[in-house]
C-alpha cells in the first residue's frame, strides 16, 4: 500500500516534472501566435480603411515577418498533443516535418512579400499580399492545428 502510494506519488511528480518543462514551451508558443494574430488583425483593420495608416502597416508587417521567421523554433519535438499540456498542435507537425517546414517557409516568404508591399504604399498590392498571407496561415492551420480556426 505504502509502496503503491510512493510509486503513484513518484509517478505524479514525474509527470508534473515533465509537464513543468513543457508548459512554458506551449504557453510561449500560444502567446507568439496571439501576437501574430494581433498583428494580422491590426493589418486587416488598416486595409479596411479608406486611407491606411502606413506606419502601422509597416510595423505590423515587420512584426509578422519577425514572428514568421521564428515560428519553426516554437515546435520542439514532443510539444504536441498528448504530452500532458493542452495544445492544438497536431502530431502531424512532427510526423511530416518536411511538409511542416515547407508550410513555415511559405509563411515566411509571404510575410517578406507583405513587407515589400507595405513599403510600396500601394493599397492594392497590400490587400493582395495580406490575403496571400492569410491563406498561408489558414492552410497550415487546417493541416497542423486541431479544430476549426475559431476555437
Amino acid at each position: 500500500m505504502l509502496l503503491l502510494g510512493a510509486v503513484l506519488a513518484l509517478g505524479t511528480v514525474g509527470i508534473a516534472w515533465a509537464t513543468a518543462g513543457l508548459a512554458p514551451i506551449v504557453h510561449a508558443r500560444q502567446s507568439h501566435f496571439k501576437a501574430l494574430g494581433r498583428a494580422a488583425k491590426s493589418l486587416r483593420d488598416q486595409i479596411g480603411r479608406s486611407e491606411p495608416d502606413w506606419s502601422i502597416v509597416a510595423s505590423d508587417a515587420r512584426e509578422i515577418e519577425r514572428l514568421a521567421a521564428a515560428l519553426p523554433s516554437w515546435f520542439p519535438e514532443g510539444s504536441g498533443r498528448g504530452h500532458g499540456v493542452k495544445t492544438r498542435a497536431r502530431a502531424a507537425i512532427w510526423a511530416k516535418p518536411q511538409e511542416f517546414g515547407q508550410a513555415a517557409r511559405r509563411l515566411l516568404n509571404r510575410a517578406q512579400d507583405l513587407t515589400r508591399a507595405a513599403a510600396t504604399r500601394d493599397p492594392r498590392a497590400l490587400a493582395l499580399r495580406t490575403r496571400a498571407l492569410g491563406q498561408a496561415c489558414g492552410s497550415c492551420h487546417r493541416r497542423f492545428r486541431a479544430r476549426s480556426s475559431w476555437w
Binding site: 501566435f33 494580422a40 488583425k41 492569410g134 489558414g138 476555437w151
Partner: peptide, 30 residues
C-alpha cells in the same frame, strides 16, 4: 464582433474591438 485565431477572419464590426476582445466574442459565440 468575433475574430478567429489567426486574425484573418472576423465579423463585420471586429475592427471596433481589439484582437483579444474579438477572441472573447468568438468564445462566447461558441
Amino acid at each position: 464582433f468575433a475574430v478567429n485565431v489567426d486574425g484573418f477572419a472576423s465579423g463585420p464590426f471586429a475592427r471596433w474591438v481589439s484582437f483579444g476582445t474579438g477572441r472573447r466574442f468568438a468564445h462566447l459565440h461558441a
